[in-house]
Design a protein around this nucleic acid. Structure first.
Lengths: 330, 330
DNA sequence: GCATCATGGTAAAACGATTTTCGGCACATG
DNA sequence: CATGTGCCGAAAATCGTTTTACCATGATGC
């Protein structure tokens, strides 16, 4: 039996004419020897490895975990395996960068850009020939991107606070206090303006995307002249840190200050008080990114897309209440 | 210039005698063309791909995230790339299983066994020829394993509660209420016995390794005849669920019931009250597992190891207090 | 009876590196 | 002059698949 026939049986080649008896013989022998095609040889021959790369900034961040889950599912469905890389290591270690990007270890890359040298990194990748999708990013550039409708979600959160009667609504911005043009800040601002409220610069602080940064950001808000009665945190983890800062200041949530988080993660319901959040389709974004990547591997052009479905949704729990009134007991 | 020379320059072959001028010429040309060796071809020729697999039960579980971080670091240091797989998908989808295990897509596998069919899966893997290390597992079998000193940690947690004066100390067991032989249950029991306390079967409930399971487990403990004054949760996430159950029952922590968690995760300090825990070297276990795997790839025999360093450590926060007294304010 | 065609395969050439073998050149030695 | 002997580098074999080209053989068409 020649290897060529075996190969075509395995790949269900439609152009192969073969006696059924022979096919059975091949299959039986494969079973007997528990034969599995060698990945490297196959990848070498067809110029395609069947592996997608996913580089995220911090694997242990639960927000990324959600994205990873979506990516994982879509990739598996499409018959691809997923390779996880550390975006920071990629940015700093040039050897591992070249190994991942240039060696055709993967067919395409999903990149969650983050950190300071993100731009430099994007440039480096764009100059290469590896098909890449930027995750959770709405940059207009040579690289495709998939993002969420952060602005709508931020507006939703802010409007909820406005609806409760708040008028001094702070915001912990993920990209620092000076990032006045980012989507979440825009959503927050547009909701304030629509309600006829002035935007106080002191009500905008940096909250980062970590517990610690949220803690610091909230402390800064509390030190400001006009103390907010409600705070919209631009990130789920920073909301956790913010809550701790409030508790340390002896303030109750939502009695003294209402708090709303961004991204609805599993533990949000288990904070004290349970955290009201806006939920965004993180998993869907992950899946969609894979679809886009696969399309692009087939030659379609770069594209910038925003995943709006399922739509951002307000998840009411116990961390928001009208101002100046004690909310329900914890 | 022949490809052979190029290859040997790139891999710093000691047996190659070459004029320095020629070497420079090779290096310059490589730089010029931004040449990177093709991974598949290289993997095919040397029967080694430079990729390690890591299969965990649930990527979004923060405990696994810690392990992943440790594995990631050690793998990168050793010049290996990491491939993340979903252990559940591996167990259920036979095609992806064979693809990962048999095709030499990876050189070795780190497997966090979990789920019901874990045993069957281990058997399937053991029958194959892929070098595998079981993570967080102390099974004696043909496969190597790396585990933590859960028993000591559990004893430490229980002794802390005993030291505070508690005598009715419940335990939420990760593997269900009937798993009387697991390490954490053993640690809990041995601490109780050492203090001359009887082990009440009603004080043992299943807490799983999810928030929900912990919630249910605590509710069960609260329904029992002898209500505990302190609970040792066998898992960090189940402690979060347990805290919610207590809150819903109108009980205060630690005023009415003290709570101590297993595994010290970033958010533990940000619960209300901040959760007292025992910290285990999760990252170190991940790193050690990689080391063991690499040794074994070089031919060393299977081994069962327990990572005891850094030693389990009690992290006191605000969720434990003497019984029948109100603890410090949240 | 000769050309054509479908059938059921075989044989061989890629794929892009690594590794082993071999050969040519220059110089020294007997 | 013949013969080693270092040095450098070229050639060729190899890894396990996929893919293309091709070849018997017998059946069919005319």
């Amino acid at each position: 039996m020649s290897p060529g026939v075996v190969s075509r049986v395995f790949n269900a080649d439609a152009n192969l004419r073969i006696r059924d008896e022979t096919r059975q013989r091949v299959l039986a022998a494969a079973e007997e020897l528990s034969y599995t095609p060698n990945h490297a040889a196959r990848a070498l021959r067809r110029a395609r490895v069947g592996v997608l790369g996913l580089a995220v900034h911090d694997v242990s961040n639960p927000i990324y975990s959600e994205i990873v889950a979506g990516v994982q599912r879509a990739a598996t469905e499409a018959g691809y395996t997923l390779m996880l890389a550390d975006a920071d290591a990629l940015a700093s270690d040039d050897a591992s960068f070249r190994n991942l990007i240039g060696s055709r270890l993967i067919d395409g890359l999903l990149l969650q850009r983050a950190g300071n040298n993100a731009d430099a990194m994007v440039a480096k990748i764009a100059s290469g020939r590896l098909c890449t999708i930027l995750l959770n990013d709405r940059t207009r550039g040579p690289l495709s991107s998939v993002a969420l409708d952060d602005e709508t979600a931020a507006r939703l959160a802010t409007e909820h606070l406005i609806g409760l009667g708040h008028s001094r609504i702070g915001h912990l911005a993920v990209d620092g206090p000076r990032s006045r043009s980012q989507a979440r800040v825009r959503g927050w601002r547009s909701a304030l303006r629509a309600a006829g409220m002035a935007e106080e610069p002191e009500l905008l602080a940096g909250g980062g995307h970590t517990i610690e940064a949220g803690f610091e950001g909230m402390r800064q808000l509390l030190r400001s002249e006009i103390r907010p009665t409600a705070v919209f945190a631009g990130n789920a983890l920073s909301a956790v840190g913010a809550a701790t800062a409030l508790r340390q200041a002896g303030l109750s949530i939502p009695g003294d200050i209402s708090l709303i988080g961004f991204h609805d993660l599993p533990f949000a319901a288990h904070l004290t008080p349970p955290l009201t959040t806006v939920r965004l389709p993180l998993r869907a974004m992950g899946s969609r990114a894979v679809e886009l990547l696969l399309e692009q591997l087939d030659g379609s052009a770069a594209r910038h897309e925003i995943v709006r479905s399922p739509a951002p949704e307000l998840i009411e729990r116990g961390s928001c209440a009208p101002p100046g009134r004690v909310g329900r007991a914890p």
